[in-house]
């Protein structure tokens, strides 16, 4: 590995998230992600995967521990948080495209308002990204007229338009009809092959096996174990992981 890999791009140390209602979403979880690394997070529903991902771009505050992104502490001060967020892209299960804007306007909004790009610059960047996810011809279409798979690809392109250093995916294919899962995973594979740093929460074990550098298993708010995909799937050591894999592979 190169020297830059020694300073992790994301470093979460002993973070804890207690929700206002008292639920402990995360219990002292630690995770570091190196530049260019693809980390896949798996675990049963309610195990804290979304919570972990959301703390990494400040959508949830943490109640203990600390997070650094590219060496900067993830502050709670609004201005700092905003600056750091521009280097962390997020893709949601429900796409969350802006329904009142066309596909290309979805991509252009943040670069114009946050990075202060001119309309022409933002448009050029957006066109390139739409072409990259195979939707150049849908630029002027509104989200409601796109299929789920297409919407999620636009959402990926929208996050990429901010040129983030790392991309977070929270179950990006879980809301899709089965026949559309492939097209979204394909885009993600391509991103990974280009060296994008990625954290992916998914139930797609095939994707994890093929693309991940490291697979992390979470259960009940804890990071139980992590390993390279080969060891993770073929020689699981942890009891809880074995149970989980049995259930997932049976389904």
């Amino acid at each position: 590995m190169t020297e830059t890999a020694e300073v992790p791009l994301i470093k979460a140390s002993d973070i804890e998230k207690r929700y206002p209602n008292g639920t402990l979403g995360l219990k002292r979880a630690s995770l570091s992600v190196a530049l260019g690394e693809v980390v896949v997070i798996v675990g049963p529903s309610g195990s804290g995967k979304s919570t972990l991902l959301r703390t990494l771009n400040g959508l949830e505050t943490i109640t203990a521990g600390e997070i650094t992104i590219d060496g900067h502490l993830l502050h709670e001060r609004a201005a700092d948080l905003r600056r750091l967020r521009t280097s962390v892209g997020m893709v949601f299960q429900q796409f969350n495209l802006f329904p009142h804007l066309s596909a290309i306007e979805n991509l252009m909004l943040a670069p114009q308002k946050v990075l202060k790009l001119s309309a022409a610059e933002a448009r050029a960047r957006a066109e390139k990204l739409l072409a990259k996810v195979g939707l150049a011809d849908k630029a002027d279409v509104h989200p409601a007229q796109l299929s789920g798979g297409q919407q999620q690809r636009v959402a990926i392109a929208r996050a990429l338009a901010m040129q983030p250093k790392v991309m977070l995916f929270d179950e990006p294919t879980s809301a899709l009809d089965p026949e559309m899962v492939g097209e979204v995973l394909e885009v993600m594979k391509q991103l990974a092959s280009e060296g994008m740093t990625m954290c992916v929460v998914t139930h797609e074990m095939g994707f994890a096996r093929a693309v991940a550098d490291r697979v992390v298993f979470m259960d009940r708010g804890e990071i139980v174990c992590e390993a390279a995909p080969a060891g993770f799937f073929d020689a699981p050591t942890h009891e809880r992981l074995k149970t989980f894999l049995r259930q997932v592979l049976k389904a």
């Binding site: 959508l59 949601f92 909004l109």
Partner: peptide, 27 residues
């Protein structure tokens, strides 16, 4: 307006006011 809209907007780095102006109010 679904909460996901605000979250998407904030995750792109838009400020609270920009989110209100460009994402929440138009919807």
């Amino acid at each position: 307006v679904p909460k996901g809209q605000t979250e998407a907007s904030q995750s792109l780095g838009l400020s609270g006011l920009q989110t209100l102006r460009h994402v929440v109010l138009p919807q």
